[in-house]
């Protein structure tokens, strides 16, 4: 009789863990992209994009720590990734 409860708890726990890890992974990959842009010298070629990527990443981390919905975290993460990509692009194109 108690089995369904155990099963349900296990599923909910797993779902929670998976969701939590997914957020942590997304933050990690945004951070890596930002670091790559920094190493490529984007701070000089696209300072605004670099600072924007950094700020949006901070916001994403803050939202994640506050336990905000995944969509809110993703909103900021996407912006951070977009800005990092732009910053990285500027180091390749040499046009600022």
């Amino acid at each position: 009789m108690k089995r369904p409860w155990v099963m349900l708890c296990a599923i909910v726990l797993c779902a929670g863990l998976v969701a939590g890890c997914a957020t942590a992974n997304s933050i990690q990959s945004a951070r890596k992209q930002l670091e790559a842009a920094d190493k490529a010298g984007a701070k000089w070629s696209a300072p605004h994009e670099m600072f924007a990527a950094e700020e949006y990443l901070k916001k994403a981390v803050m939202e994640a720590e506050e336990g905000s919905p995944r969509a809110d975290v993703d909103l900021f993460l996407k912006k951070s990734l977009d800005y990092s990509a732009k910053a990285l692009q500027s180091t390749k194109g040499g046009a600022k």
């Binding site: 605004h48 600072f51 924007a52 700020e55 916001k59 939202e63 809110d72 909103l75 900021f76």
Partner: peptide
């Protein structure tokens, strides 16, 4: 402002998006 104060401008923009949320 984007060119002369990139950091402060980026902070202002991110805070505005955060405020909307």
């Amino acid at each position: 402002a984007k060119e002369c104060a990139p950091k402060e401008y980026a902070v202002a923009k991110a805070d505005l998006d955060s405020a909307r949320l």
